[in-house]
Simulated scan of single mutants.
Amino acid sequence: MGKNLALEGKESLRNDLKVQLPVPIDSKRYLMGKVAFIDVAIFSPFLIISGVLIYFFYQFGLLNQYTFIFSSFPSIVIIAFQMIKHPIRREIPYLRYKVIWNYKFKKREKEFFYRKGAFDMSDKQDARRKIGIKSTFADCYETTDKRFVRVFEVSSINLSLSNKSEKRSTLESFRVFMTTINFLDSIQISQIAQPINLTRHMQHMSKRQKKGSEDNPIKTMLNTGYTNFIENIQKSRELVTRKRYIVISKKISSDREKTLDEIDQLSQLLMTKVESMTFDHSSLSIKQLNNDDLVKLMYTCVDYDNAVSVGDHIVERANDRSSVTVGQNTAKDLINTLQKQLLEKVN
């Protein structure tokens, strides 16, 4: 009876094009009930310490309820922390996720700096050392573990607006893609939230505004208000767009040129496979990110808040080799001040 209900449940999920995700696998071996062998290994040292303390107090005639509680306290605390489990992931004990992980989080380094110029592995505060990306080269990330990583931006299809036949066709095309590509182990699929970029829209609107608002103060005021409104939208952290990426990597051999040729071949094959995926009324587009796009993506993932405010000036700041970096308005004021001083200076 239970088996039939389980089969009916799976069939119902299959008809609705849904999948029941499995519970996280618990690889621990249990001695009895909820007590695993690893729990016993953690308890044992503290139980031995408690036993030694109780024996010590007993030998000297000091054993009473207070010394007994004092001796047993370490064991009771460890057993309680180890047996209380995570509310969702039952295989993770309280001692691990609430004590050890919190301690490591508080002790870890929280401030890193982007050093311009040559990469130095001995500099522990260089952000590139932590994220594992040395530089962008030939439209690839060059990583600290000697790999070339190439990123592709892929369009998406909204399955929630599709009927069942369209969903089946889409999922079947994706299944064929996953089963026919021969370098699946080097592929990573990611979805990354990024700030809204309305720069092109603002440029388009500014061109249209210049045509008919030069002699009309009302239109000028409305256009200024609309421009400020768009800029505020871009700076808002709540408005984001989700972009989908496919990432492939290749280990760098002694011959760098050969490795680049190999990843170029994989790139062409991947783009062909994605573009050849057939759907009822739509298709996917795929674009390989160039060096500037890779810099923007890395900056957005590392420092999202500043990426919202900096916008398209990310690449300029990343490629700036000057030891001093200033904003656009500050740079203009500085140049005007220096020019004025040069003109007024008396030799």
Rank of each mutant, 00 (worst) to 15 (best):
Met121Thr: 11
Lys210Ala: 13
Phe119Gly: 03
Ile181Gln: 05
Ile38Leu: 10
Asp255Ile: 01
Ile78Asp: 02
Leu338Phe: 11
Val247Pro: 11
Lys243Ala: 10
Glu316Ala: 12
Asn291Ser: 13
His201Arg: 03
Lys3Met: 06
Asn182Cys: 00
Leu297Val: 05
Cys301Leu: 11
Met221Lys: 12
Lys146Glu: 13
Lys124Tyr: 06
Lys273Asp: 07
Met121Phe: 06
Phe105Lys: 15
Asn319Tyr: 11
Cys140Gln: 01
Arg129His: 10
Gln191Glu: 11
Ile88Lys: 14
Leu289Ala: 12
Phe43Ile: 04
Phe152Pro: 12
Met221Thr: 08
Val326Pro: 03
Glu8Cys: 02
Gln268Cys: 09
Thr241Glu: 14
Thr179Gln: 14
Ser160Thr: 14
Lys28Asn: 11
Met1Val: 04
Asp39Lys: 04
Asn197Val: 03
Asn329Lys: 09
Asn15Cys: 00
Asn347Gln: 09
Ile48Asp: 02
Ile196Thr: 04
Ser267Tyr: 04
Asn223Ser: 07
Leu5Lys: 12
Met1Thr: 02
Ser283Gln: 14
Val324Lys: 09
Asn223Thr: 04
Leu17Ala: 11
Ile25Trp: 09
Ser160Gln: 14
Val247Asp: 10
Leu343Phe: 06
Phe43Glu: 03
Val176Asn: 08
Asp320Cys: 12
Glu153Leu: 02
Thr259Asp: 09
Leu13Gln: 15
Lys146Asn: 15
Asp312Tyr: 01
Val247Met: 14
Ser267His: 05
Leu47Thr: 04
Glu214Asn: 09
Pro195Gln: 01
Lys210Ser: 12
Leu222Pro: 04
Ser285Asp: 15
Lys345Ser: 13
Phe119Val: 00
Asp145Gln: 05
Asn329Leu: 10
Ala193His: 01
Phe152Leu: 07
Ser169Gln: 13
Glu142Phe: 01
Leu270Tyr: 05
Leu198Gly: 01
Ala80Met: 08
Thr330Ile: 10
Ala331Gln: 09
Val302Asn: 04
Thr224Gln: 12
Ile79His: 01
Phe105Asn: 15
Ile335Pro: 01
His201Trp: 05
Ser135Gln: 08
Pro24Tyr: 03
Val154Arg: 04
Ile157Tyr: 07
Ala193Tyr: 07
Lys85Tyr: 00
Glu109Phe: 01
Ser165Arg: 06
Leu260Gln: 02
Phe60Pro: 00
Tyr245Met: 08
Val19Ile: 14
Gly51Glu: 02
Ser27Pro: 05
